[in-house]
Amino acid sequence: MSSVPKSLKYSNSHEWVRQDEDDLLTVGVTDHAQTMLGDLVYVELPELEGSFETGQEVAVVESVKAAADVYSPVSGEIVEINELLLENPQLINEDPYGKGWLFRIRPFESELKDLLSADEYSKVVASEAH
């Protein structure tokens, strides 16, 4: 069973979101997603200062046999990207909720709508196993 930290919010499309003290959000892909994809070999990150709508394609993660789009869980502006991933995409496999974060985004709306709690996301993962 993959790990789903209680402190984070999630999207149906397997992104996690962490609300930071400076009101910015850190976004990554979940442990479940990285397990399904397998060893990652490449990450395409958004450009700094780019604006994205909720659900818009914002990044791509690639394994040997699959490439998956990452969708922006909120609408906002990209303020930081994890450049370490460009050389070391395996960080997502090794530490999806830590060193494997993808980008930080400044949300346009202060309230986080439509995101899932850890429990709700666990149900999504469980339902996919069938």
Binding site: V41, Y42, V64, P89, Q90
Partner: peptide
């Protein structure tokens, strides 16, 4: 063959 190495 190690396809992950080939791609990384």
């Amino acid at each position: 063959l190690d396809e992950v190495k080939a791609a990384r």
